[in-house]
Every structure is written in structure tokens, then in C-alpha cells.
Simulated assay, not measured.
Amino acid sequence: MPTARNNHYTPNNMIEFITGILASKTPSEAVIDLHGVGFLLSISAGTFDTIGQPGEEVTLLTRLIHREDTMELYGFATELERKIFDLLLSASGIGAKMAIKILAGMSAPELVAAISARDYKMLTSIPGLGRKRAEKLCVELEAKMGDLAVSAVPVGGAPSADAIAALEALGFSRVEAARVIREISVELKDASVDKLIRAALNILNK
């Protein structure tokens, strides 16, 4: 079971998930009505965008946090987001509120890519996450990302996947290649593999 250092938080998986009617939601909280009992969960902006509208049935994966004299329930739309939340809690100086704030700052796949590639510019765009803390976060979590660094990065269609594979063959990491291809694909829609590779190399070789 993961633990959070220096902040008296203890993650608990006693409640694995909650399925019920979404009573209300904001970008930071959701209330799920389960047989007349309203469960308040802290959520990220990504989960807010994913879970649907009030009145609909939803399922959220959960993490129950014990903090001194209180308990807090956190909800996640995906297992990836919950795993990253647990990893963030394992970093020194990161509590549950800061972890969910980090997840609110960018999507789970983007966060995995940023930490794996040590993209400090991207990480420090999150409010409250300065350069020193971002560097420390990367040092502590980069090795723990494991397969998340590969599975979390969407590769898009066939041209994007082929371009990423080609960049890997040239010695670039999959995470770094996928991040650049994803950025390029926003502007170069329907671009060929060759065009994607050339554009990516112009960025990666700077």
C-alpha cells in the first residue's frame, strides 16, 4: 500500500469504486447518490470532463485517504489516473490535495510523459509546482513510472505510430517521440509519416 511522506496521509483501498447517480459536479468535486447517501469525492478536471452529467449513472474508482482526524474520498475516471495519484503520494512533500491539483493541471498521459521526459516547462505550468519541486518529483518518480510511460501515451493513427517507431529506431525514447509527434499532429493534420518525422527531428535536434 502506498504511503505519503511527511503529511500524515494514508491511502486506503477499502472502497474500491462507487457506482451511483451523479447528483452534482464541479471541476474539483463530485457528489454521487448511492441509495440515498451522497458521497462527496474530490476529482480532477479530467475526471470532471469524463463522467457525464448530473442525473446519469456513473462509476468512479476511489481512494480513501486518512488524514489525522478526517477522511477524504478521491474519485478517478480511469485506473491510470488513480495509479498516478498513488505514485504522486509516494513522493516526498506531496499530499493528497497537491496530488489531485497536479492531476487537475494536465491529463494523466501528459503527466506521465512530462515526468518521464523531465519536461520542467510543462510541469511548472501547474499552479503551485515550482522548478525545484518539479525536478525533485522527476528524480523520485521517473524510475517508478515503468510501463505507464509507454501505455499512457496515445499514439494516434497509423502515421503517428509509424513516425514514433521510426524516431525510437533513431535513438529517441518512446515518451519523448510520442510527445513531439502529438504536438506536431495538432498543426499538421493528415500529414504523411515522412513529414511528421522531419518536423519532429527539427524539434528534437535543437
Rank of each mutant, 00 (worst) to 15 (best):
V31G: 07
K83N: 14
L80R: 13
A30R: 03
I43P: 08
R63V: 00
L34H: 13
T70L: 14
T59C: 06
L80M: 10
E81N: 07
G93N: 00
S28V: 03
H66R: 15
T78L: 03
V31T: 13
S90P: 12
F76G: 04
K83E: 15
Y74I: 04
L88H: 14
L73M: 03
A104V: 03
V31W: 12
H35E: 07
E68R: 05
E57R: 04
A45I: 12
A104T: 06
T78F: 06
Y74W: 02
T50C: 08
L87Q: 06
L40P: 01
S24E: 11
F39E: 09
I32H: 10
L88R: 13
L80I: 15
I51K: 15
L41F: 02
A45F: 10
E68M: 06
L73H: 13
I65L: 10
H35Q: 11
L89V: 08
L60G: 11
I43A: 09
Q53C: 07
I51W: 15
G75P: 10
T47A: 14
M98V: 12
L40Q: 14
V58N: 08
L89H: 05
H66A: 09
G95D: 04
S90L: 09
A30K: 06
D33G: 12
I100S: 02
G55N: 11
K83H: 13
G55D: 04
A30G: 11
P54A: 06
E81A: 10
I100M: 05
S28G: 03
T26V: 13
S28N: 11
L87V: 05
A91L: 08
G95P: 05
S42Q: 11
S92D: 08
S90R: 06
I32C: 08
R63C: 15
S92N: 13
K25F: 07
M71P: 03
A77K: 12
R67C: 01
Y74E: 06
S92P: 00
S44P: 14
G38W: 11
L73A: 04
I94Q: 09
K25I: 07
S28Y: 11
I32V: 08
I102D: 05
T50H: 15
L61W: 14
S92K: 00
D69L: 02
H66G: 09
K101Y: 01
L64I: 01
P54G: 06
L89I: 00
H35D: 02
T78G: 09
L87W: 05
T62G: 05
V31I: 15
I65E: 02
A45K: 14
S44T: 14
T59F: 07
F76P: 08
G75D: 09
G46L: 01
F39G: 05
F76C: 10
E56K: 03
A99V: 03
T78N: 14
E56W: 10
